[in-house]
């Protein structure tokens, strides 16, 4: 997902306190920043919310790539608004992480140095306009699958950030599907482009949910803490079931020969993505890993004089005001 493979931290606190904490979570009482919490809970959340925030920010790059080349002024304005929303999502999430005692610059530095990850999906390129449709439809679609249940997560600031994000997110998926509809109903060439985008982005989208974690201790702990609400396979299944009819409506084919309706489970059987590719991308070997980190580092470095200048100006004004008083 936007946060993939989050390892949970062990807790070493007093068992009685841990039990009370768990009881509170079981009762659906939100944990707020100044409440007592196990160190493991705090650290795991920083990692998860931080990775989620980084994904929103890096996720602007593949789409930002097409803002200047959108086919019409209206599409350009829509895409600009969508990408701007993602910047906001990053901000809400960074702010939620900061309430856990990590600084914003700290998180940024960990992204820039490659110490913290962002979602594997953003290491794939957007080669043509149809990809922008497919990203909104599939990538935002997959993100929504994961984010809707997270609105009920146990950590108050994270939950509130997710609620805000979900309100804005369905516009993203719809604008993507709208592009796909136009392309799929367009000329032969446009239809081919739409199919090609689906072919390339289908498996990377399935990878967003991460490998099966039904047996994982980290996943079990994170679900008990309600910072993860469903297993990766549950969400992936939901995503496939939701997306197949949408592809059918477009007249496009999901690139999976094994895709069949399974009456018994009430869902589709589908092929797993190539997990070795997934791990390779996480290691930094995806098609765009280097580009993405370079772009973020460049933006950060090039913006330094602006951040410093505005801060110096604000301090000067403050000093002048104090002197006048």
């Amino acid at each position: 997902m936007y946060a993939q493979m989050i390892k949970s931290e062990a807790s070493t606190e007093d068992p009685k306190q841990l039990k009370e904490f768990q009881a509170k979570i079981d009762d659906n009482i939100k944990v707020e920043p100044r409440d007592w919490m196990p160190e493991g809970y705090r650290k795991t959340l920083i990692r998860q919310i931080g990775q989620h925030a980084h994904s929103e920010i890096v996720g602007q790059l593949p789409e930002g790539n097409w803002i200047t080349r959108a086919p019409t002024l209206e599409r350009k304005m829509i895409l600009l608004a969508k990408v701007q929303d993602e910047a906001g999502h990053g901000l809400y999430l960074y702010a939620a992480a900061e309430t856990l005692g990590v600084s914003r610059d700290d998180l940024t530095e960990q992204l820039l140095s490659g110490k913290m990850k962002y979602s594997s999906i953003f290491n794939y390129p957007t080669l043509n306009w149809a990809d922008i449709g497919a990203v909104g439809w599939l990538v935002d679609g997959a993100a929504i699958m994961n984010q809707v249940p997270l609105q009920r997560t146990s950590y108050g600031p994270y939950s509130r950030a997710m609620i805000r994000i979900c309100k804005e997110e369905s516009f993203h998926q719809r604008q993507g599907y709208d592009i796909m509809m136009k392309m799929a109903q367009g000329t032969e060439t446009q239809k081919k482009m739409a199919q090609d985008a689906l072919n390339r982005l289908w498996y990377p989208s399935l990878m967003m949910f991460g490998p099966s974690d039904a047996e994982s201790v980290h996943s079990t702990q994170n679900m008990a803490w309600k910072i993860k609400m469903n297993t990766n396979d549950e969400l992936r299944q939901k995503f496939v079931d939701q997306t197949v009819p949408q592809a059918q409506y477009l007249g496009l084919t999901i690139p999976d020969e094994n895709l069949t309706w399974n009456e018994e489970k009430g869902g589709y059987d589908y092929s797993d993505p190539d997990w070795s590719e997934f791990f390779d991308v996480l290691k930094g070997n995806g098609p765009c890993n280097v580009d993405r980190l370079e772009a973020r580092n460049k933006a950060w470095d090039d913006g330094a004089w602006v951040r410093d200048g505005l801060m110096a100006h604000a301090e000067k004004k403050r000093a002048a005001k104090t002197a006048a008083e």
């Binding site: 600084s103 509130r160 950030a161 330094a304 951040r307 801060m311 604000a314 403050r318």
Partner: peptide
Amino acid sequence: SKEWPLWEIFIRGQHGLSHRHVGSLHAPN
């Protein structure tokens, strides 16, 4: 360099309502 300070943001959603906390952000002033 120095991080911009953190601000808490309160917004009045509609005329007649009180301001409500909506989130935070960093800004120089």
